[in-house]
C-alpha cells in the first residue's frame, strides 16, 4: 500500500518529464531498429566477404576478411570515379541555390496571373525524379530526342536508304551525351538541377514574403538599390531560407541515385557512377552480390555524410541557442 502510493506519486510528480518520452518511444524504437541498428550491421558486414547467401541449414556463407574490402576500395578506379562524381554533383548542384534565388526574385512581383507562373515554375519539383530522368533521357537521345532532332535539322540531310526508307546522313554524328564518358555526368546533373532549382525557388519565394517592407523602405531612403539592396538588405533577411536551400541541395546531391539508375545505370563503363549507385551495383544488382564490398562503400559514404550532418546539427544547435 505504502509502496504503491509512493510509486503513484512519483509518476504524478514527474509526469511532465515522462510524457514526452512516452510519446517518443514508438519513434525511437523504429529509428533504432530501422536506422541505427542497420548502420552498425553494415559497418560490421564491411569486414566480411559475402555473396548474400545462407547455407541450407541457415548459417551464413560470409567469410571474415578484416579490412581487405577497404584496401580493395583504395585500389579500385571505379571507387575513385564515383567519389569524383559525387564531388562534381555537390559542386554543380549548388548552382540550384543562386538560380533558384534569381527566379524567385523575378517571380516576386504583383502581376495578374502570377500564381499560375509560380506554379508552372514549381512544376518540375512535383514530378518524380524517375520521370524527370526518363524525360531527360529522351531529350538527350541522338535519334529521336530534341537534341538529335535539332542536330539533324542543322547538320544532316535527308536521304532515301537502300530499301527506300527515309534516313539521315550527317556531316558529323549527333552528340550522344549520355553515352559519352566526358559529358554523361554533366547531362545527368543538368537533369537533376531542373527540379532542384524549383525547390530552391519555392523556399526563396516563401522567404521573400517575410522580408520586412519597412527595412526595404529604409534602405531605399538611404539610397540603396539594385545589387547593394539585394546584398545588404534582402539577402540577410533570407538567411534562414538560404540555409535550408543549401541543406536540401547537399542532401539532394548526395542521394543522386534514381536519375543515374534511370538514365545511364552508371554507364558508359562506370563513368557516371556515384557512391550510392556503385554501392547498389556491387551489393544488390544482378552482377553484384558482393555484400561485404558494397557495405564498405556504404560505410565510406556514411562517413562523408556524417561530417556534413554533424556540421548541420551543430549549426542548428547554435541557431537555437541564439534564438532563445
Amino acid at each position: 500500500m505504502d509502496v504503491k502510493a509512493t510509486e503513484h506519486s512519483w509518476l504524478l510528480r514527474n509526469k511532465l518529464k515522462i510524457a514526452p518520452w512516452v510519446f517518443l518511444i514508438p519513434a525511437l524504437a523504429f529509428f533504432a531498429v530501422y536506422v541505427i541498428e542497420p548502420i552498425f550491421e553494415s559497418i560490421w558486414l564491411s569486414f566480411y566477404e559475402w555473396n548474400g547467401l545462407y547455407r541450407a541449414d541457415g548459417t551464413s556463407t560470409a567469410v571474415w576478411v578484416g579490412v581487405d574490402n577497404y584496401i580493395k576500395l583504395w585500389d579500385d578506379p571505379k571507387f575513385w570515379t564515383s567519389l569524383k562524381n559525387n564531388l562534381l554533383w555537390l559542386l554543380l548542384f549548388m548552382l540550384a541555390v543562386p538560380i533558384g534565388l534569381m527566379i524567385a526574385l523575378f517571380l516576386n512581383q504583383t502581376v495578374s496571373g502570377m500564381r499560375i507562373y509560380k506554379s508552372l515554375f514549381f512544376f518540375p519539383f512535383v514530378i518524380s525524379q524517375v520521370v524527370v530522368g526518363l524525360i531527360f533521357g529522351w531529350f538527350y537521345n541522338p535519334d529521336f530526342g530534341v537534341v538529335g532532332s535539332v542536330w539533324k535539322a542543322l547538320f544532316c540531310e535527308e536521304t532515301i536508304n537502300i530499301v527506300g526508307n527515309v534516313s539521315f546522313r550527317c556531316s558529323s554524328p549527333p552528340p550522344d551525351i549520355l553515352s559519352s564518358p566526358e559529358f554523361a555526368t554533366y547531362g545527368i546533373i543538368a537533369a537533376g538541377l531542373w527540379p532542384q532549382i524549383a525547390y530552391c525557388m519555392i523556399l526563396y519565394l516563401t522567404g521573400l514574403n517575410n522580408v520586412a517592407a519597412d527595412q526595404i523602405e529604409a534602405g531605399r531612403l538611404d539610397g540603396a538599390k539594385g545589387w547593394r539592396m539585394l546584398w545588404f538588405v534582402v539577402l540577410p533577411q533570407l538567411r534562414p531560407a538560404t540555409f535550408i536551400a543549401v541543406v536540401v541541395t547537399v542532401i539532394g546531391a548526395l542521394r543522386s541515385f534514381d536519375m543515374i539508375a534511370i538514365m545511364t545505370q552508371g554507364g558508359p563503363f562506370g563513368s557516371t557512377n556515384v557512391l550510392a549507385y556503385y554501392m547498389y551495383e556491387t551489393a544488390i544488382s544482378e552482377y553484384g552480390e558482393r555484400y561485404g564490398y558494397g557495405s564498405a562503400i556504404a560505410t565510406v559514404l556514411f562517413l562523408i555524410m556524417l561530417i556534413y550532418i554533424s556540421y548541420f546539427l551543430w549549426r542548428m544547435y547554435q541557431d537555437e541557442k541564439g534564438g532563445r
Partner: peptide, 19 residues
Amino acid sequence: ENHASMSWQDAIAPFSNGD
C-alpha cells in the same frame, strides 16, 4: 553510332528501317 545509349530493342529501329 550511339550504340552505347540504346537497349537491344532500341537497336532494332535502324535494322527494321534498313539502315
